[in-house]
Design a binder for these strands. Structure first.
Ligand code: FES
Ligand code: FES
Lengths: 149, 149
DNA sequence: ATAATAAAAGATATTTTTATCTTTTATAAG
DNA sequence: CTTATAAAAGATAAAAATATCTTTTATTAT
């Protein structure tokens, strides 16, 4: 098990890609995005539709259309994307699956999980959707699933 | 998405339960365990069979039989259970789902994920399967999914 | 030996997640 | 206003995770 669902991994890689394009005023078509982040095109379309409905990304139809981010959206913390896709179990739920995480009736690992959840929450709150545009543009980091080396 | 699969949550709760019983020399029947940790009995049986094959727990058949842990098993770090059930994607995989986590071709969140993965690994390596027996015996912590309050 | 007990194993079923296919709607350009 | 483009929406399909059912094997006590 990975930390995020596959759906969420695609979503994050996609918004990072769209963000970088948006920074230079470009819109991204679903075909292009899917190819650049190595994701199934039609499935990614569904994911982006969902993010669009939730207001985390936006799009226009028709020629010269595509997905893009407003400058406000570029400033949103990445945790918004994760919450939109995977919900907030990762941030508030009990690590051992108890119905609710509770100080009164904690699981054995409650304190340990609390610390880790806190770290994850902080990290995802402190990086913004557009925060990696520079590194992406410079090719210092990658969004492609399959390695080329 | 939670941090562990449901299967893994059941596995951890079960080994904690068996551990506490084992500490006082008792074996635990699958029926008893399932009831005490609120898990589907027959599914949990499969999970425990798997842990048994992998040598993390042991059992005897027949009357007075059941699952139990040797003193060596009680000392094993909990991470062994997680690895046996969920694999090690959580500890070594790329958080954004790239084929492999790599320093040379990192994803944008590589450093951030590395720190968090490290925290999780450390935490699960530093708690032992039998490490909560006292707190469990005293009723300070709970393994029951559904709250009674 | 026989019967009762309890886990192991194998087969099947259900649910959720992931992925694809098809049709519709909105937009822009000619 | 017609055509091309591209996302939105709805329906379906495939795969994986979760859960259950049935039969078998090992052990213990009588
Ligand atoms: S009760 Fe389990 S993490 Fe809080
Ligand atoms: S490359 Fe993504 S976590 Fe290392």
């Amino acid at each position: 098990m990975a930390i995020f669902s596959k759906t969420c991994e695609y979503a994050i890689r996609a918004v990072f890609y769209i963000a970088q394009k948006s920074a230079s005023g470009m819109k991204s078509g679903i075909k292009d995005i899917a190819a650049e982040i190595d994701s199934p095109e039609l499935y990614l379309a569904k994911i982006l539709q969902d993010l669009s409905r939730k207001g985390l990304i936006t799009s226009t139809k028709g020629p010269n259309g595509g997905f893009f981010l407003t400058s406000e959206m570029l400033e949103l913390p990445l945790i918004e994307v994760v919450k939109a896709v995977d919900g907030d179990a990762l941030f508030t739920g009990c690590g051992l699956g108890l119905k609710q995480c509770s100080e009164l009736h904690p699981c054995p690992l409650h304190n340990e999980f609390k610390a880790i959840r806190n770290d994850i929450t902080l990290m995802l709150s402190n990086v913004s959707i557009g925060g990696f545009n520079q590194e992406l543009a410079e090719g210092l980091v990658s969004l492609k699933k399959s390695k080329t080396d």
